[in-house]
Design a protein around this nucleic acid. Structure first.
Lengths: 339, 339
DNA sequence: TTGTATGCGTTATCAA
DNA sequence: TTGATAACGCATACAA
C-alpha cells in the first residue's frame, strides 16, 4: 500500500553499505565482486524488490532498446496473429522482445503508434501498412541504421525491405483452376478499398488468368468487400444479375466468411468457389472449400530474418521477398458449370 | 547511409541558436515561447529529423511510461487477438499505447516478458497467465501502484483483479441443453492440461449439468486435447468405445477444430455437438454448430477498464469480473439421440 | 576487489 | 520570453 518510490541502485547500495557501482557490477556480472558482497547485494535486491530501470540503462549505454516492434492493421484478424507468431519465433531466439500494436487500419493511428515506438528507441520496425499510409518519414530512421521491414503490403514512398505473399500468381492460379474446370463467367470479390495492395495484385492475377484463357474482362463481375456482411450482399447481387457467374473467386479471408454463408443460404451448391486465404473448418464444409492458402507464419519469419540481417550489418539494397502460396483442392473449386 | 548519431535537443538548440530548454518548451507546449522562435525551432526539428527520446523524458519526469502491456499465451489464437482488440479500444482513448507480447504458454517466457515490461516502467499490466505460472512476484509491483489485471484465467498466488468468462455456468448451460434434447451419454472433450483454469471450470459445469439431471459421472466419457489433431483422435476413440456417447460437449476452440472434422469424416451426423467458443463458419456447417459463445472483446474491454480505474486511484479490494456467455442454437446441439 | 567522477537526453527550478 | 544548472537512474573510465 505504501505507494513509495521505486528503489534504485543507490538504495540497494546504501542498504548494503557499498557503492552503486558495486551493485551494478553484481547485477550485470561485470567485473570482479567478492562472493560475500555479491550475496549481500542480491539479498538486498530481493528484499527491496529492486528492478533495474531499463530506460536509464539503455540511455547510458547508448544502445537501442532490445525490442522489435510490429504494427498491424487489425489485432483481431488471425492472419496477423499468425504473422506475429512467426516474427516472435525468430526474434526470441536472439534475445529480442516483440512488441505489437494495432493501427486499426487508420493512417493517423499508425503514425502515432510508430512514433511511440521510435521514441522508445526500438531495434527494429516491422509494419503492415494501413491503407493510405505513406512512409517517407521513415527514411531517416532507416538511413540512421534502424531496420525497417514491411509485411503483407509494401511501403509507399520508401525503398525498404518487404515480405509479401505471391498475390498475383496465387490469384491467377486460383482463377485458372476454375477456368480449367470449365467456367467462363468467374466473379471476383476483392478486398476494399480497391486501392489496397493485396486487392490490386490479386485482381491483376484474376485478369491475367482470364486473359490467358481468352475470356474478356467483365467489370460487372467484380465486387468489393472487406467485412463478411458486405461480401454476402455483393455475392447475392452478382448471382441475381441477368447473366450471373458460374464461379466466384473470393479475394480475402473476411470476405470469404460472408461469401460462403451467402452461397449456402441461397442453396447454391452449384456455384464453384475458390477463396484466397485458408480458413478453419474449410475442409468440413460441403463441398469442402478450395483455397489459395497463404503462409502467414512464414511471412512473419522471413520479415524477422530481414530485420536480423540488417541488424547484423547487411547494407545491401532493399529487396522484396515473395512467400509462396498454394492451391488446396477440396471440392468447391472443382465443381463444373451447369450445362 | 551516414549512420550518424541521432540528433538531440541540444543539436536542435545549437542549430537554432537557443537553449535546449527552449526547444523543450516548444515541443511540450510548456511555458511561453515567441512565435518567431517557435517557428525556427520547429523548422530545425523537421530538418534534423529530431525525435524526442522518451526514455530520457520518462526518466527525468519520473513518470511511468504511457504504455499498457498485455501478455498472452498464443499470438496466433484469434481469441486472444480479439481480446487485445478490446483492450486497445479502451486504452487508446486515454492516450495509452498497448504493447502485446506472447509467453508461448511457457512459464519462463512469461516471466522474462513481464520482467522486460516492468523494466520499461509500463503504466499497467494485463496478463493471461501461462499454464503453471505463479505471480507472487508481482505483489510488490501491485502494492507499488502498478495496476495488474488478469484475463481469461485468474492469477496464482496473488490477489488481483481478474476478468473471466462465465466458464462454469456456460458449460453447464451447454450440457444441460444437450440433456434437454434427450441425451444421457454426453462426452466432454476438455482443454489440456487438465489443470488449466478454464478446463477445470468448464468441466465443473459439465458435472453440474449431469448431476442436476441425475446422470452419473462417467470418466470414460472425458478426454483432453488442446490441438485439433489430438481432439480428433480423442473423439474417434470415444465413438468407437463399447458404450459410446450420443452427444459431445467440446471445451475449447482449437479442440473444436478437430472434433467437428472428425465427426464429419466419420459420417456421424447423428452425434449431437455443442462447443465452447464460437467459430467462423459455424453457421454454415451442416448441421450448424451450436456453441456457447464467449465475448473476447468484452473481456478485453472490461480488463482495460479495471486498469484505468486502478490508475485513477481505485484502491478497493481485488475483484473478479465475470463476462457472460450465451448459447447459440444452430442445429448440432438440438439433434435428438437415436432411439 | 571496490569507489569516484562524469555523462547519456531530458525536464524542473530558479534566475535573468 | 529565455537560459543556466541540477537531477532522473544507470554505466563507463579511471583511480585506489
Amino acid at each position: 500500500m505504501a505507494q513509495s518510490r521505486r528503489p534504485t541502485l543507490a538504495d540497494v547500495a546504501s542498504r548494503v553499505g557499498v557503492s552503486a557501482k558495486t551493485v551494478s557490477r553484481v547485477l550485470n556480472e561485470d567485473g570482479p565482486v567478492s562472493d560475500a558482497t555479491r550475496a549481500k547485494v542480491l539479498a538486498a535486491v530481493d528484499e527491496l524488490g529492486f528492478r533495474p530501470n531499463l530506460m536509464a540503462r539503455n540511455m547510458r549505454v547508448g544502445a537501442r532498446d532490445s525490442t522489435v516492434a510490429l504494427v498491424v492493421p487489425e489485432m483481431g484478424n488471425p492472419f496477423f496473429g499468425t504473422v506475429a507468431g512467426g516474427v516472435e519465433d525468430v526474434v526470441r531466439d536472439r534475445g529480442l522482445t516483440l512488441l505489437m500494436g494495432s493501427s486499426a487500419e487508420d493512417e493517423q493511428s499508425e503514425l502515432s503508434l510508430i512514433t511511440a515506438f521510435l521514441a522508445r528507441r526500438i531495434s527494429g520496425l516491422l509494419v503492415v501498412p494501413a491503407t493510405g499510409a505513406h512512409h517517407r518519414y521513415l527514411r531517416r530512421e532507416r538511413d540512421g541504421g534502424l531496420p525497417v521491414v514491411f509485411l503483407d503490403r509494401p511501403a509507399a514512398g520508401l525503398a525498404a525491405d518487404a515480405v509479401v505473399s505471391e498475390n498475383e500468381e496465387g490469384a491467377r492460379a486460383g482463377v485458372a483452376h476454375l477456368i480449367a474446370h470449365g467456367h467462363r463467367r468467374v466473379a471476383f470479390v476483392g478486398d476494399r478499398p480497391a486501392t489496397l495492395y493485396t486487392r490490386k495484385m490479386r485482381q491483376r492475377g484474376y485478369r491475367a488468368a482470364l486473359s490467358a484463357a481468352g475470356i474478356p474482362y467483365d467489370p460487372t463481375l467484380v465486387a468489393s468487400a472487406h467485412d463478411p456482411y458486405t461480401a454476402g450482399v455483393a455475392v447475392r447481387r452478382l448471382l441475381d444479375s441477368p447473366s450471373p457467374p458460374t464461379a466466384v473467386f473470393c479475394g480475402n479471408n473476411f470476405a470469404s466468411l460472408g461469401v460462403v454463408p451467402a452461397l449456402a443460404e441461397a442453396g447454391r451448391r452449384d456455384v464453384a468457389l475458390v477463396c484466397f486465404d485458408d480458413l478453419p473448418l474449410a475442409a468440413v464444409l460441403e463441398p469442402g472449400l478450395t483455397v489459395v492458402a497463404q503462409d502467414p507464419a512464414a511471412i512473419g519469419r522471413a520479415a524477422a530474418e530481414r530485420v536480423l540481417a540488417r541488424l547484423g550489418g547487411d547494407r545491401s539494397a532493399a529487396r522484396t521477398v515473395m512467400v509462396p502460396v498454394r492451391v488446396i483442392e477440396r471440392g468447391s473449386g472443382e465443381l463444373a458449370p451447369p450445362d
